[in-house]
Nucleic acid binder design. Structure first.
Lengths: 333, 333
DNA sequence: TTGAAAGCGTTACCAC
DNA sequence: GTGGTAACGCTTTCAA
């Protein structure tokens, strides 16, 4: 294990001072073009790798934006992630990801871990946190953004949409089509707060429209996947005959439900309507296309990144952005 | 913005040396219980926050494992990621993710970025890299693992499977079922190396079995998604009448193709068979279930994590693990 | 059980 | 355009 190649090594090999090497690497235009080229060449030859740990230490800027998300195999978040990275790549920031697995205790532990890295901003998915997390985050002097939600008492900036409102769009649509007996398929109550908001969004809208009480079907603990949607339909097959619309907490669940119905010989949408949430690829590509709500996943990421850029540049920015949600009619309703 | 509270501040407030504070914080048992308690109390009172950046700098241990992957919305990788995080969470390591977007130039840039953080290990998806990357990585003194592949000239440890062999399983299966005229749907040639291995795996196996030349259908540049699979089928509708099996580069592509066939009134599998790759949820939940190959995505992540643990503990470990692949028969063939 | 000294690799600041 | 000096906050090492 040979010692690390440092700026000092490059400097002495080129015959300049470490400062010049430093400047050359950071694109300081007071360095002559000839020097810069030589420095780069020698650095490459020596296998020099810029030590950002030292830089982070020296400048107190680690170049990290910490991001919490419920789960990595969240199709929705993939879009947000892409929007974020694309827009953030220009700033040289790197994302430090952590998964909360839909548990506020885990979120607290995670936030603590992430903050120990001195990130330059904190982006959290969702607006529901433990008291300790709120205290921890409230004391921060870095930008904080909550996304994918519109919390009543935000910790910082907010970029999202109302989960309840998005679900209401679907209930309205189903009611228009003459569906009355609605069941909601979602995660076990307790863990996934945004899932709970979707559920109550459905329940309350149905009540407001004078529909019968919504049946709640439990697809298991979050994260609920395609398989859970399918299993839930199979387990509740008898109950489904009483129902004329299945409102699912996400497109993946809806997809599972749709395909299980196909297996069981239940016709969609004539026997039962199915709706999803999120406008994932799977909902659009599926035949029939799944009726869902588009919540602008990618735009959220993009908007978060743009807001961060503005905040880093200390510009004024909106504190609360509601990107809304829109109904996407498919063949399942 | 007042200056940061440091160990020195805590030390002088307590009346000890910074070293004692440092020891107290790291649970060094040579510090007396009384001192430790006083240090903790004073630290809390002063609002002292442990600076992990300084520690990382000083100790050259940042607690990061760098991981490159082709793309974040890769359903396959999600399983691997989960296996990795689960097994690695006990070691206190954090994952530093980067997406190569299926381009070796981007991989080179990314590896450079990641290495700048001084990670304690580097895990790369795939075994195909630019010369510069090979040079960069070859000079490292940290553990290096290539996964999802079995490169002929590995850079370090290898945990994966043979892409070509996995595809051969599918071709054999199709041939057994009497399919002869095969088309392969994959990304544009050039970028995605593992995709290319899958393609040549199909082409060569078909040739070995004495089947007609495989038709290559281009689904666009990597990453190819569900939408691309669907679009490719629509664009090549006429050509498909000459074909009796569509071998897709991934389950998502196969799913897109399957659903587009349904739209176009092409019957699967009687008109045409369709196969995928990866055993993603979508292939299993889909009705009909998509014939595919299981490449043990989650086990790969788990095995990588276990190998890293062993390497950190400086134990002997196998250098090359072939986790194999197995045929999963569905209703599309 | 505690302390003093010496950096880790980089950059801010000031000279030249 | 370039260089010298002095840190940043912590831990390693040796000494007491």
């Amino acid at each position: 294990m040979q010692p690390r190649v440092t700026m000092r090594d490059v400097a002495s090999a080129v015959g300049v001072s470490p400062m010049t090497v430093s400047r050359a690497f950071r694109g300081d235009n007071t360095v002559s073009e000839a020097t810069r080229t030589r420095v780069r060449d020698v650095a490459r030859k020596l296998g020099y790798v810029y030590d950002s740990t030292a830089t982070a230490f020296r400048t107190k800027k680690c170049g990290f934006v910490a991001v919490t998300l419920p789960s990595v195999n969240n199709a929705n978040f993939a879009e947000t992630f892409r929007g974020l990275t694309q827009a953030l790549s220009t700033t040289g920031m790197q994302l430090l990801l952590g998964a909360t697995n839909y548990r506020v205790e885990r979120e607290e532990e995670l936030v603590r871990q992430l903050l120990a890295r001195n990130p330059e901003a904190l982006v959290m998915t969702g607006g529901h946190h433990s008291d300790a997390t709120r205290e921890l985050v409230g004391a921060l002097s870095i930008p904080v953004i909550e996304m994918w939600d519109l919390p009543a008492a935000p910790l910082g900036h907010v970029i999202g949409f109302s989960n309840a409102h998005a679900m209401a769009l679907l209930v309205d649509h189903l009611a228009e089509r003459g569906r009355r007996r609605i069941a909601f398929v979602g995660a076990t109550e307790g863990a996934d707060q945004r899932g709970a908001e979707r559920r109550s969004g459905v329940v309350e809208r149905a009540r407001a429209l004078g529909l019968p009480d919504v049946t709640i079907l439990n697809a298991g603990p979050a994260p609920v996947s395609m398989r859970h949607g399918a299993e839930c339909v199979r387990a509740n097959q008898a109950a489904l005959s009483e129902i004329d619309a299945l409102v699912c907490g996400s497109d993946t669940v809806a997809f599972g439900a749709l395909n299980e119905c196909r297996r069981l010989g239940i016709n969609v949408p004539s026997d039962i309507a199915i709706t999803g949430f999120g406008q994932f690829d799977v909902a659009v590509v599926s035949e029939p296309q799944i009726t869902t709500v588009d919540v602008n996943a990618k735009e959220i990421g993009y908007c978060v990144a743009k807001t961060l850029e503005a905040l880093f540049a200390e510009q004024e920015t909106p504190l609360r952005v509601d990107l809304g949600a829109s109904l996407v009619k498919g063949g399942t309703s």
